[in-house]
Computed example of a mutant assay.
Amino acid sequence: MSLFWRVFGLNAVVLGTATVLLLWAPITVSVPILVTEAVILLGGLTVMLVANAALLRIGLAPLGRLTRLMTTIDLLRPGQRLTVRGHGDVAELIVTFNAMLDRLEAERAASSARALSAQEAERRRIAQELHDEVGQSLTAVLLELKRAADRAPDPLRDELHQAQEVTRESLDEVRRLARRLRPGVLEDLGLVSALTALATDFGTHTGLRVRHGFDSGLPPMTPEAELVIYRVAQEGLTNIARHAEATHAELSLRCAEDGHVVLRLSDDGRGPGLVPEGSGIRGMRERALFVGAALEIAPGPERGTQVLLSVPVAGEQES
């Protein structure tokens, strides 16, 4: 039944019932109308309006559910759909809305994949320029400072040595930035070694104690999936260092019973929900969609925040 005929039928039922009751009821209306007659008529009108409102609410309930879903939909959290019940205009509208969500999620995933691929290519280019151009220039400056310090008198030699230390620290920082932009260890030594180096590097430069543990014999994954796991761990550790006010963090990579590889990152900080999700977390969600993974950010078992990334293995990704 279409929405028009549904509303018309509900109103017809209410009006028809009211008419039947008026015909059969031993009620007369005098002129001028008596107070008791006015009370009875107003009471009947009230009952009729209440019944009509209740029936309309039942009939239009699917539209209410659709409206609530439309206000909360987020393409970074796929899978939100309405259940289709019955037939008619409302059911067709829900089917069309679900199909629109399917199309939008597919388009969002495709556009995110293109954007992330371009982003990684740009990161590689910047890292290469930092390593080749800036790194070599700072290395040349260090050599010149060393030669100048060897020939300089004692008062000036100390200042040149200080300049050498500052330049060496700048060179180390440039190399660290290049490693963050392009994790060469991930390509050369694999995911476990890259995550180990990431945890060690964060612990060294932020003072955050990062414990890590990884299963041996993890199933094979695509290079894209390994890069997503690394970037999510990297962004998660960055968020902990910046916002969580934590002192400890734990990073693990396990193989779940369903065959998925699960990255778990937890801390003892403030916990989620205190600030809205920023670009970092939304970027993590986009990366998860890129490889069909599920990302969950929730309070930890005791305190702090827990990030869980469940990544399908290579065979499931291809299917």
Rank of each mutant, 00 (worst) to 15 (best):
R264Q: 13
A314C: 06
L41R: 10
D158I: 05
A99H: 14
E165Q: 15
D258F: 01
R242F: 04
V84Y: 01
L60E: 14
R282Q: 12
G271V: 02
D215V: 04
M1R: 10
V311Y: 03
S193D: 14
P301W: 02
A38H: 02
G213C: 04
V232P: 10
G315T: 11
G300W: 10
S112L: 07
L274S: 07
E107S: 10
L177M: 14
D132A: 15
A293P: 08
A233R: 05
A99C: 06
G59S: 11
H248R: 15
L41F: 15
S252C: 04
E302Y: 06
L130H: 08
V134D: 02
V29N: 11
Q317P: 06
E257H: 09
A246V: 11
Y230L: 11
R264Y: 00
E235D: 13
L56E: 11
R182I: 02
E187D: 15
E92Y: 03
P26D: 05
R151K: 11
L66Y: 07
Q306E: 15
T72R: 14
S111V: 13
Q306K: 06
T196D: 13
R287G: 02
A115Y: 07
E302R: 14
M100N: 12
A148S: 13
A54Q: 05
A53I: 03
L289A: 10
W24D: 02
I40K: 08
G86P: 14
S193K: 04
S193N: 12
G203N: 11
A127N: 08
T67S: 09
V228A: 08
H87N: 11
H243G: 01
E92I: 00
A256W: 01
T19E: 08
E107P: 02
A140W: 11
R303M: 10
W24N: 06
E224C: 04
V313K: 01
R114F: 06
A61H: 12
T19Q: 09
R254M: 05
D268Y: 03
A288P: 01
M221V: 12
F290Q: 14
T28G: 15
R285Q: 12
H161K: 12
T305R: 09
S266R: 15
A127Q: 03
L104T: 00
I27W: 12
R81H: 00
G213T: 07
S319R: 15
G16S: 13
